[in-house]
Amino acid sequence: MEKKVSKLAILTKGIIKENPVLVLLLGTCPTLATTSSAINGVGMGISATAVLICSNIVISLLAKIIPDKVRIPCYIVVIAGFVTVVQFVLQAFVPSLYASLGLFIPLIVVNCIILGRAEMFASKNNALDSALDGIGMGLGFTLALGVMGAIREIFGAGTIFGFALPWLSAHPILVVALAPGGFFVYSLLIAAVNKATKGKGVKGDFGCHGCAMASICQQEKCIAELEKGVEA
């Protein structure tokens, strides 16, 4: 990094300015799948945050030892290790959350936010900065998932964190809590960010800019070549 960034800036940038879900459009799968209720969304967010902070710290410490060529598999092993720990913790202390998140707990491994931060931040910065970055990004992720989960729970079930709301609980819009509602609420949130930032906020389109694998797989290059080939 060329210029020195203050610790506070590292911590806060993930929450609003570079919110991983609403601005960088990363981690869409857990965002859509686990936000059917507020508690699930927050639970997923906290689990991913825990993994993110731990893996960021460990990877920033190991960055100099890990050979460049095998860095991605090494990162994946570190992340998978912490995911297994989180899986155990959830299973032991909050079995209800463990049951409702189900498949998506092991899938934290392939969450692009975590691998992305490892590749883009933790491998280039010291442990303290990486931890702060992990906390910030994790908070942003948790916040976005919590808000989305709350919206879907309020309209889909008429409850918030399990407490019934007057009138709404008698008239739930079930589809909001189901799969289509996930896509729809997510699109509304992104549109709101677009509106609030006058179109400058959301970084372009779904693409590879934030994906950790971008440097290896060069998907964008491949797709560009492919599309060129089709046109030619």
């Binding site: 896509f183 729809f184 699109s187 549109a191 677009n194 179109g199 779904f206």
Partner: peptide, 11 residues
């Protein structure tokens, strides 16, 4: 305008 790009794709 706010829906152009990503949001309309999600809709």
């Amino acid at each position: 305008q706010s829906f152009q790009g990503v949001p309309i794709t999600l809709v």
